[in-house]
Amino acid sequence: MITITAVIRAKPGHEATMRDALVAVAAHVAANEPETIGFFISQSETEPGLFTTYERFTDQAAMDRHNTSAPVATFFGIAKPILDGEVILVTSQEVSATLR
Rank of each mutant, 00 (worst) to 15 (best):
Thr98Lys: 04
Thr46Trp: 08
Thr58Arg: 09
Val90Asn: 14
Thr46Pro: 02
Ala27Ser: 12
Thr58Asn: 09
Ala79Thr: 05
Phe75Arg: 02
Gly85Phe: 06
Thr17Trp: 01
Pro12Cys: 08
Ala79Ser: 10
Thr74Ile: 13
Asp64Phe: 09
Ala97Val: 09
Ile2Asp: 02
Pro71Ile: 01
Gln60Cys: 11
Ala27Pro: 01
Gly49Phe: 03
Arg19Ile: 04
Ile2Thr: 06
Gly13Asp: 07
Ala73Arg: 14
His28Trp: 12
Leu89Glu: 10
Val29Pro: 00
Ala6Pro: 01
Phe76Cys: 08
Thr91Glu: 12
Val87Tyr: 02
Val87Gln: 05
Arg56Asn: 04
His14Cys: 13
Glu55Tyr: 03
Ser92Thr: 14
Leu89Asn: 12
Pro81Ser: 08
Pro71Gly: 05
Ala70Cys: 11
Glu47Thr: 15
Ala61Ser: 15
Leu99Gly: 05
Thr68Ile: 09
Ile82Ala: 05
Arg65Met: 11
Phe39Asp: 00
Ser44Leu: 09
Phe39Trp: 08
Met1Val: 05
Val87Lys: 02
Glu55Ile: 03
Leu83Cys: 04
Val29Thr: 04
Ile88Val: 15
His66Cys: 06
Thr91Gln: 14
Ile4Asn: 04
Met18Lys: 01
Ile41Met: 02
Ile78Asp: 03
Ile41Ser: 01
Pro71Thr: 04
His28Tyr: 14
Asp59Cys: 10
Pro81Lys: 08
Glu35Pro: 05
Thr58Phe: 02
Thr74Pro: 04
Gly13Gln: 07
Pro48Phe: 07
Ile78His: 05
Arg56Met: 08
Gly77Ser: 12
Gln60Arg: 15
Leu99Ile: 11
Ser92Lys: 10
Arg65Ala: 15
Asp59Ile: 06
Val87Gly: 03
Thr53Leu: 07
Ala70Leu: 14
Phe57Ala: 03
Ala31Tyr: 03
Ala79Phe: 04
Arg100Lys: 10
Val90Ala: 15
Ala26Asp: 06
Gly49Trp: 01
Ala73Tyr: 08
Thr98Ala: 06
Met63Lys: 12
Glu35Ala: 15
Pro71Asn: 06
Thr3Gly: 13
Ala73Val: 11
Ile82Val: 13
Ser92Asn: 14
Met63Pro: 02
Thr52His: 05
Arg100Phe: 08
Phe76Lys: 07
Ala70Phe: 11
Val72Tyr: 03
Arg9Thr: 05
Lys80Arg: 15
Val7Asp: 06
Val87Pro: 00
Pro48Met: 10
Ala16Leu: 12
Ala16Tyr: 07
Arg19Leu: 14
Leu83Ile: 04
Val25Asn: 00
Val25Lys: 01
Val23Phe: 08
Ser44Gly: 13
Asn32Gly: 07
Gln93Thr: 12
Val23Ile: 14
Ala10Tyr: 00
Val90Met: 13
Arg56Cys: 04
Ile88Leu: 14
Phe57Ile: 07
Glu35Gly: 13
Ile41Arg: 01
Thr3Val: 11
Ala21Glu: 00
Ser92Met: 11
Leu89Trp: 11
Thr53Asn: 06
Asn67His: 14
Pro81Ile: 04
Tyr54Met: 10
Ser96Ile: 10
Ile8Asn: 00
Thr3Pro: 02
